[in-house]
Design a protein around this nucleic acid. Structure first.
Lengths: 271, 271
DNA sequence: CCGTATTTGTGCGTATGTATC
DNA sequence: AGATACATACGCACAAATACG
């Protein structure tokens, strides 16, 4: 049993080097300087598989070689291949299907979701902090993009969102949750901006949030939640970005309340 | 050789199912419904190790049991434990130290960095959409928090940043890069907001960006880069949030140029 | 519907490298 | 330097899942 604890956290000046730890600055990985001209003699198996994907111009969804083939091609045992695959799978770089094959993954933000969600579960205090920060960032992103949203949201997307809010109200009237609709709504909101990363972040943050919410006491006012989404929609319809920012802020206000810690809204809602 | 391609996977521009990376039917994980009252009989090894951490109230930095102990306690082979550890390690949930032991990780956003960076490299040849989006989001976050930054940045942090810019200029004069200083600068900028998630995101995005930048042609104008940071600093010193927003936008402008695709600034810089 | 081939998943034994004491 | 504990590496056999004829 290891008797010693880890020497605290990594301070500003912490000279210890971890060989395979994820510290991009200290890692002689695939990216920095080893890919350029040298042979992959000292690259890790993970990096060599990444390299394989890049060199063969594989796209998400493309099939990977079997583990045995990779084991031969890279001249390492299948155990090593499998462990590397586990890492790549956790990062959503490959997708493994039992009994079928392995494929290049969709490279989403699932890894961040797992990590953040677990961190929240570790201790309740941290959870509160993470969640509060999370809400702030979500609100920040959406309010910042308000102008672009009112500018570029198409009528088609609008009607799709309209349908979602209708479903929300229906379900609210029946006392049912409508998580899927809520998520989809925010995704559509971001989609108009054309920023795929913003869409992904929104989805990922929503996931983290919904996971943590399940562990929280208290209930959500369903009807009110549905209404604030309608308000957002109306603001877009009116092409009023200031109104939209306000609606978004009002949307997040009850969520903040429920988390107990009300952070003063940190975004600039105009002056 | 894999017999076929995956049946009907999404194309690059598939507008319909951008449900990003979540597949709820495949994850009866630790979080949703399986932890509540049921026995952990059907939980995956990864989830059971997570559960172990939670039940034993382990904090980041605490030592984990050895693989053999876990193998016994969970009644699975060491192979499975090791593969599970690979997954958890990729998610920064545990940290394995060569020949010493395994510890609870710091749960940062390193996993997202890996994933995003690789994604950027995948379609780097075709278009730099990912990187363009990344810059937009970085700028968005910083400009949105401009008010809070000018409000809460302490003199101590100010002088630390001042020192960083001084070093930047020195190194620029010698034709040297100053990546570390650049990164630290942006981290300090965010730290004043008190939003730990924003700090983490900033660091993570900076990492992704710097990794991708290495693969790009062209050079950076070092002196100019140093100057824009000074401009940011001056704006904070003048407590002028509008000026700060402008400085931040100017900071990112040359980076956009270098990526070839100049996106119209998407953030609202006030009205 | 069934059997078979392919592929990933699991278990186990053992050998080797490496950090710490 | 030696001993110990741990992580890493390799190989094989079998189980389970999936696709396809």
């Amino acid at each position: 049993m290891p008797a010693k604890k880890l020497p605290a956290e990594h301070g500003p000046g912490d000279p210890r080097r971890l060989r395979d730890s994820r510290d991009p600055r200290e890692r002689p990985g695939l990216l920095g300087r080893d890919l350029r001209g040298s042979r992959p003699a000292e690259l890790s198996v993970v990096d060599r598989i990444k390299e394989y994907i890049l060199l063969n111009r594989l796209a998400p969804g493309d099939p990977m070689p079997t583990e045995n083939e990779l084991s031969e091609q890279l001249a390492v045992s299948r155990s090593r291949i499998r462990e590397a695959m586990k890492t790549l799978s956790a990062l959503d770089i490959v997708e493994v299907r039992h009994g079928y094959g392995t494929y290049v993954g969709r490279l989403g933000l699932t890894a961040m979701v797992e990590s953040l969600a677990f961190r929240g579960m570790l201790n309740a205090q941290d959870d509160q902090d993470v969640m509060a920060d999370l809400i702030d960032v979500r609100e920040l992103i959406e309010t910042s993009l308000a102008e672009v949203i009112v500018e570029r949201t198409t009528p088609e997307v609008m009607s799709a969102m309209r349908e979602l809010t209708a479903t929300m109200h229906e379900r609210a009237a029946r006392g049912e949750e409508f998580l899927a609709e809520d998520r989809e709504f925010h995704l559509l909101l971001m989609q108009a901006t054309g920023n795929a990363l913003a869409v992904q972040l929104t989805g990922a943050f929503w996931d983290v949030h919904s996971i943590a919410l399940g562990a929280l006491p208290g209930t959500t006012d369903l009807a009110q939640t549905a209404s604030v989404h309608v308000a957002v929609l109306d603001a877009i319809g009116a092409a009023d970005s200031a109104l939209l920012r306000g609606a978004i802020v009002r949307h997040y206000a009850p969520i903040r309340d429920r988390m107990g810690r009300r952070t003063p809204p940190v975004t600039t809602t105009g002056e």
